[in-house]
Nucleic acid binder design. Sequence first.
RNA 1: GCGCCUCUAGCUCAACGGCAGAGCAACGGACUCUUAAUCCGCAGGUUGGGGGUUCGAAUCCCCCGGGGCGCACCA
Length: 493
Amino acid sequence: MADPRGPPGPLRPQRGRSAVSEVPYRFEVTHAASEIAQRWGGLSAGEESGDVVSVAGRVMLLRTQGKVAFGELRDSSGSIQLFAQAGATEDLEDFVRLNLGDWIGASGEVVRTRRGELSVRVRTWTLLARARRSFGDKWRGVTDTETRSRQREVDLWANESTRSHLLVRSEIVRAMRERLWAGGFVEVETPILHPIPGGALARPFVTHHNALDADLYLRVAPELYLKRLVIGGFERVFEIGRSFRNEGISPRHNPEFTTLELYWAYADYLDMMGLVEELVAGVASDVVGTARLTYQGRPLDLTPPWRRATMAELILEQTGHAVDVGMERDELAALLAETGAAVDPSWGTGKLMAEYYEKTTEGALWGPVFVLDYPEEVSPLARRHRAGPGLVERFEPVLGGRELGNAFSELIDPDDQRARFVEQARRRAAGDDEAMVLDEEYLRAMDYGLPPTAGLGIGIDRLAMLLTDTANIREVIAFPTLRPERAGGDSAG
RNA sequence: GCGCCUCUAGCUCAACGGCAGAGCAACGGACUCUUAAUCCGCAGGUUGGGGGUUCGAAUCCCCCGGGGCGCACCA
């Protein structure tokens, strides 16, 4: 358990000098640990550089030997050895009493010890923070998944891969922004508090605004507001931000998650496929240096072009059954029932086909592959397919056996949109609490004219999992959602 | 929400029906070139919580709680 009561005994005794009140207000750092390794890496064993530097970080290891001591100081760039010595280091008797995890700043000459370790030979040093609690086993770290997620500040010091996962995530967002800016896309922010939840089929979180005395919903997707910006004349917009869905937590789902949503006027879903494969492969190259990945032991080559295949084609490939939305409902329902899935009597052939795809085919795809042409019945915001009746121009990119996102030629006809909303409202009334709510505000906006537009959503957390080769979404979210710790008590019921 | 697994010292783990232990950290000490330093010493526990079975429970059973995985839903 993650220590909900605080430490069971007293906190570790405080030794040595330096109450917190004596800690300085600032410390002048001249070099990061990695810079010292780069600049003075050429020193030979026993050599002294004559150059004095100041470094700061946590003391992660400490080996004392009477009148001499060696410590590993870790900062955000890496580690550097501190070498303290009687006659050279002030307050040596306090230095050797530092606790692992204490945060210090130290100044001294860059030297390489006789045994060959590049070091800062400490002349002066100052305590910057005490670690009143320990960071766990210095060799094995912290492995308890709950502690790692709940106390990420501990995990970050105990397990170096955690830092690198979060750094990769940060680089992904940076690379994505730079590529989109270069493509003429404008980054915007739209409301997170929505009067009506819309833009996706999902259950929302509800909250309340006191002054307005109105219920508001945390957005399940920014889609509708972004399309209103297109109506307003932003021809290329994107937003990178959080959405919230009141649904289960799993290794691939967090109740709050980050997406890129992007709208591109005058383009269709075919154009969007080109953008997606270039963007994802490009970001991979920018961040990890290659588009040829290995994910969970299997190769995954993101180099464009990606395979494009319709849902019907992929189902046929996987199951041997030719399926389409125009077939007899009973026949399709029988096929789905064979998979063991429950069949709801209210489902039409579109929903049945989508369910059948998910049960039989999706998990078997490795990709990258664009799965094209979804049933209209499960796509209330996508435009009818120019060729196939009952279908829409929609695709999902599937990578590593999981959908990475969702895109379509946007539905631009206000009358069609109203009809789709009415159908959603009918389902909602029939008990489907993931169905959409009719949004008059959005329909009014559509009346002003939405030009042909392609829209896209990509899961940033999922992309970060791919590029860090991690199987659990917690590994790429700094503070994943967990059940709240109970205040002031233990876990007894 | 359902099923399975799991919870022992601050951390990492033993003990699996018969005296709750080790390593690391912490605490006290030795040591002037260490690399998870080493050595000596000391301390640390309502075995997640509660109930039951038993001569005896960390261990078996039940309830509750946390976490993990799978199913369902979804990105």
